[in-house]
């Protein structure tokens, strides 16, 4: 059940995007998201779309795989579109039927909102498709290292994040195993009302929590045994370093940002 979720799961192939430094990808994704909120006409969205297509091409992740990953958020998107379409006021009114009316600004907003959501999710999931969770937290730790001046425990937060990320597939697998074990004992997870289904989760959740706690204490013990004492003086096995391709990527992203800003202010 959880294994079928492709949204945001690392996709192991070789590509230009896979080879980039995680900091480059993090910064670029941030800038791309900002650009989506700056863009306010079709020219801007077209450019954002073209840039996205370029990135998808450079990532070697099949478009079909990306589209499949969008499925879980389809409902959210529909809801946004419908709300924007029907609840936006203004002139001129394009369509009226009893209390339902669609206005030109409403239609415009609905389309832009949908595009913005699609681009936003594709863009940010492209980052996680091409970056392993470990690399991502490494990138965050290094990229946000300056925050240490303000007494933000950057290393500890990054470590917690990487542990949490590392545990997601483990716990998903464990949940899958426990579910199967309970199914082998005749448990039924597919039928019944909301309450019956919620009750059916107890035989999965109790063992899952127990195993999560057991794993957590084991891990803490193992870290202690290896003298882990936080980030101070800790060195990396693979220190992050910018390469030529990172500078090329940055150049591209800045160029894109510049055009978006120009388009935004020049009508």
């Amino acid at each position: 059940m959880l294994k079928e979720m492709t949204l945001g799961q690392y996709y192991p192939v070789d590509s230009f995007l896979h080879g980039l430094d995680p900091r480059t990808k993090l910064a670029s994704t941030m800038l791309y998201i900002i650009s989506l909120f700056l863009a306010n006409d079709f020219r801007g969205y077209l450019l954002a779309f073209l840039f996205l297509i370029l990135c998808v091409k450079a990532s070697n992740v099949p478009a079909k795989y990306i589209l499949k990953g969008m499925k879980p958020i389809l409902f959210l998107m529909m809801l946004t579109v419908v709300l924007n379409l029907f609840l936006t006021g203004g002139e001129p009114v394009l369509f009226r039927w009893y209390f339902i009316r669609i206005t030109a600004p409403g239609a415009r907003l609905a389309v832009f909102m949908a595009l913005r959501l699609i681009f936003l999710i594709t863009g940010s999931s492209l980052m996680t498709y091409t970056t392993t969770p470990t690399a991502l937290t490494d990138g965050m730790e290094k990229g946000l290292g300056f925050l240490r001046v303000f007494r933000v425990p950057v290393h500890e937060i990054a470590m917690m994040m990487s542990i949490a990320l590392r545990f997601i597939p483990i716990l998903a697998e464990e949940a899958d195993k426990i579910q199967k074990a309970q199914m082998a004992r005749g448990a039924n997870f597919e039928e019944g009302g909301v309450i019956a289904r919620a009750k059916a989760m107890v035989p999965i959740l109790v063992p899952l929590f127990i195993s999560a706690f057991r794993r957590a204490t084991d891990l803490a013990m193992a870290m202690e045994a290896r003298c882990y004492h936080g980030g101070e003086g800790r060195t990396k096995m693979f220190p992050l370093k910018y390469h030529r391709c990172d500078y090329i990527a940055y150049a591209f992203v800045f160029l894109y940002m510049a055009i978006i800003i120009v388009l935004c202010f020049v009508k």
């Binding site: 195993k177 074990a181 309970q182 199914m183 082998a184 005749g186 109790v206 063992p207 127990i210 195993s211």
Partner: peptide, 17 residues
Amino acid sequence: LRGRVGLVFQYPEHQLF
């Protein structure tokens, strides 16, 4: 069928609740 073909998983004690 699962009642007729009983399956005990590895580390089955992890499924007790």
